[in-house]
Amino acid sequence: MKKRTMETSLAGHSPGLVRSIERRLFLKQGLSLGALALLSGCDPTDDEGVQSLLKGMSRWNDRAQGWLFNPNKLAPEYPESAITKPFPFNAFYSEEEVTLVDGKDYKLELEGLIREKKPWTLPELYGLPQTSQITRHICVEGWSAIGKWSGVRFSDFLARVGADTSAKYIGFTCADDYYTSIDMATALHPQTLLTFRFADQVLPPKYGFPMKLRIPTKLGFKNPKHIMSMFVSNEFPGGYWEDQGYNWFSGS
């Protein structure tokens, strides 16, 4: 069919010319496909210009997510029967290397734009009004799991210590050297909890004893475990994974 129509339009030309035109067209086709394959085969991600473009887009996405974030929109909550068992362990180290924090000597340090910087012991933290949630933890890797966490509403805690809630960021440092930070709007969200219990038990080491900040409106890596200190600041604190290239806002 193709040949016949070609010959009609190129009537009077030699069959050799027709074939050569066809060959050239086919070559062009093949080359463009090759270019596509090359694009995916040899990774242009490492190119400096591409890197700065991608980082710029990630910062733009931080802003877009900030606008999209509705402080009153609640993450869906689930019945006890929906809880994932066993709940997955995930960290940059193995389960046997989980950091053990001594609860007796533990004190939560507060820094930055906070009025009452007195460190908090575990009994003091356990004495605050507690609430529970059963929500879906979504990992940036794609998997998700439903768990039950209990603790104090983070906005209540921030009010109690006199944190400057007009500041932009809250940063966290953890016993396993991990660090991350979140935006103030998310910190004040009603479902953002400073948790001490998992599945109605004292938070086990693998899930972040003595304390994990549970944020159902953010991806798992934005939910720090083994929190040792926190600070309020207007200086952008970043985070371990965020500084490596993961999106900072990472909201759900």
């Binding site: 085969g41 990774d43 991600t45 490492d46 473009l53 991608l54 887009m57 990630s58 940036v140 890797e141």
Partner: peptide, 21 residues
């Protein structure tokens, strides 16, 4: 991995959420 773009998870996510727009 030879057929994928980004080199690692964070790189792939950067591409995905940039080209999304």
């Amino acid at each position: 991995n030879e057929l994928t773009l980004g080199g690692w998870l964070a790189g792939a996510l950067q591409w995905h959420f940039a080209a999304m727009w």
